[in-house]
């Protein structure tokens, strides 16, 4: 998917993560901050990058502020932000297709 316009999903509440995606030209540029960076930073980064790869996002500036989200929440927030940036987050989501 192509990142067409800036979009955001998620909140700064505990157990959540706020994900912002913006159009970019130089691959995936990820800026990550997390309240549990020392313990889980590597895994959080991997989950975000895997999700973007699954959605076939090649170029984007991605900012994630993590507040201790589980992997399933990180995935949900990244996916929602990407679908919002393409204006297709409201219906006909490919559940069980690229969303797994």
């Amino acid at each position: 998917m192509e990142i067409l316009k800036p979009a955001m999903a998620g909140t700064l509440e505990s157990s959540d993560a706020q994900v912002t995606v913006e159009p970019g030209t130089q691959g995936i540029q990820l800026t990550l901050s997390s309240s549990v960076m020392n313990q889980y930073g590597r895994q959080i980064r991997a989950t975000i990058l895997e999700t973007l790869e699954r959605l076939e996002v090649k170029n984007a500036n991605v900012t994630v502020v993590d507040k201790g989200a589980l992997d399933c929440t990180l995935k949900a927030r990244v996916e929602c932000a990407v679908f919002r940036s393409a204006d297709c987050s409201q219906q006909n989501i490919p559940w069980g297709g690229v969303i797994v």
Binding site: C72, K75, A76, C80, W95
Partner: peptide
């Protein structure tokens, strides 16, 4: 936030 809630729900149902 209806769209975001669905993504969140889907992964909760599949993961938890």
């Amino acid at each position: 936030q209806k769209d975001a809630a669905r993504f969140s729900l889907y992964h909760a149902l599949k993961t938890i």
